[in-house]
């Protein structure tokens, strides 16, 4: 069965001032699949990820060409409201960054300011359950989120993104600051989330990409070297550089 393309990245270039960080990348993101973006440090994978929900807008001197479409929404159109984009494309960052507020408020703030309808308690519980955090925190929802462990904080950040019920969730090396046990929990979580969400994950960790993703994109110095089903990319890469990278010969 052919998967539906939900995010269409078409010939995208991203510059920081004069530096070309992403070069002519064309890439489909398939609905309800996990797409991993891998590549050596500085290859532009985080830059590409942040451009998908216009988080690069906050970086002074960052500019782009090309097009990204989410369904019928043109993400790069200056008339498109970035707030609207971020309601449909959520994000989880490299380091857990909960708000210095209660666990409950962390989840509820986004839906509150965007005036999402429905019972807030149910929304918070649902998000925490989906992020596999509910049982650990259900008795202390009013405690500060900063008292949670690093792994719990990152699952809280995932729950915070889930509570917005986005179509796509971007994850920028979500496990790089976590221990192996927390990492394993989040990887398990990704499998369940893909039933309802589309996930794009940037990772340094090739085993992680191989374990969790259905599609893999390999970037080097801003260029898309190879894109395909994860199994093919890892076991039968078409490009020599990809093979060298996935077998650990450089990077």
């Amino acid at each position: 069965m052919e998967n539906r393309v939900i995010l269409d990245i078409d010939d995208v270039c991203i510059r920081y001032g004069e530096d070309l960080a992403v070069r002519n990348v064309t890439l489909p993101i398939y609905e309800n699949q996990i797409t991993a973006i891998i590549g050596p440090s500085g290859c532009g994978k985080s830059t590409l990820l942040r451009s998908l929900n216009r988080m690069n807008d906050f970086i002074h001197g960052c500019s782009h060409t090309g097009g990204i479409a989410l369904g019928d929404m043109d993400i790069y159109d200056p008339a498109t409201d970035p707030v609207e984009i971020r309601l449909r494309i959520g994000m989880v960052f490299q380091r857990p960054n909960p708000f210095p507020k209660s666990i409950y408020r962390n989840i509820a703030w986004g839906p509150t300011i965007n005036e999402l309808k429905g019972d807030m308690d149910a929304r918070v519980e649902n998000a925490l359950r989906r992020a596999a955090l509910w049982d650990e925190v259900k008795d202390r929802l009013s405690d500060s989120a900063l008292n949670l462990s690093g792994g719990q904080q990152q699952r809280l950040c995932i729950a915070r993104a889930l509570a917005m019920e986005p179509e796509v969730i971007l994850m920028d090396e979500p496990c790089s600051a976590l221990d192996p046990v927390s990492t394993a929990r989040i990887e398990d979580l990704l499998f369940e989330l893909k039933e309802n969400f589309t996930i794009v994950i940037v990772t340094h960790n090739m085993q992680q990409a191989a374990r969790v993703s259905q599609y893999t994109a390999f970037l080097e110095t801003g260029k898309l070297i190879e894109f395909g089903e994860t199994e093919d990319v890892f076991t039968n890469p078409k490009n020599e550089r990809t093979e060298e990278y996935v077998t650990g010969r450089f990077g």
Partner: peptide
């Protein structure tokens, strides 16, 4: 800035 980004990312 991670705090600002977190807030922007939920559509603020």
């Amino acid at each position: 800035s991670s705090l600002r980004q977190a807030a922007f990312a939920v559509g603020a």
